[in-house]
Design a protein around this nucleic acid. Structure first.
Lengths: 131, 131
DNA sequence: ATGAATATACGAATATCTTCGTAAACAAAT
DNA sequence: ATTTGTTTACGAAGATATTCGTATATTCAT
């Protein structure tokens, strides 16, 4: 199992923090906390504690060279997405990715461009299967 | 909010039980427990307790007319899948269903038939958009 | 009827996640 | 130097999820 294959399992709250860090890049607890504050209200030390735990778990890296620590995500967004998605396919959609795809498309209007992109992708895939 | 719009949020273990009931239909605790036993090992009373709690929460219906109670899912597989999926799109894929779709297709080889089905679906959708 | 097997009900222990209060360290301003 | 504000560290409370031991009820075979 490679570096990207580590079994990550962020909790709800942890995922919120990861999203902020993926978006903003390396940040202080204060910065993360302020972004979160827009959607949720928890105390500052709550955010701090969560990020400390995430660091212990290996979800976050941190730079402690200055007094105010700088945290950054130690897991890539793509790997995390893939792992959570794979798990959902397994446990919710009985292993059928296409069942999930149909469900996803059915309930979310996608733009014409997005649909094109997906169709293009499917065409390429069919070619591969046929060869 | 309709009957199908209730905000369901089964836990990991609860989902395992729901899957058995969706598959097998109405079942006793014993029957569910035996299916679960193949992949996990917990005591019988653990399964019982979980199913009792699920009944309290409204996730399961039960028929107590005979001594051995018969449980069945009170939530449809499709609605549950949709809710969990919507949530994942929101919290993991920043609201982009198509991003999720591409990720899902990329990592799971689907059969030619499945791809056809999806393409057909996409074609229909494009027509709708164009009209 | 008695005993063995099986079922439910209940309470509680354990684990994990989330939250926050408080203390100690540090920096900047007065 | 003292105060004020900001930060980290620590511990613990609260909430939820998971697990199981034990008691009680019921069925069935003897």
């Amino acid at each position: 199992m490679g570096i990207s294959g580590k079994h990550i399992k962020p909790t709800e709250s942890e995922l919120e923090i990861l999203r902020v860090l993926w978006e903003k890049g390396p940040s202080t607890v204060r910065e993360v906390h302020e972004v979160l504050g827009q959607s949720k209200d928890a105390g500052y030390t709550t955010t701090l504690k969560l990020m400390q735990i995430m660091h212990e778990k290996g979800l976050l890296d941190r730079d402690t060279s200055s007094k105010t620590h700088i945290y950054s995500s130690a897991v890539s967004q793509e790997n995390t997405q893939r792992q959570l998605l794979d798990k959902m396919i397994d446990t919710v959609f009985n292993g059928s990715a296409s069942q999930l795809v149909l469900q996803a498309l059915g309930n979310h209007t996608s733009s014409k461009e997005e649909l094109e992109k997906i169709k293009q992708y499917l065409n390429d895939m069919e070619k591969k299967i046929n060869n």
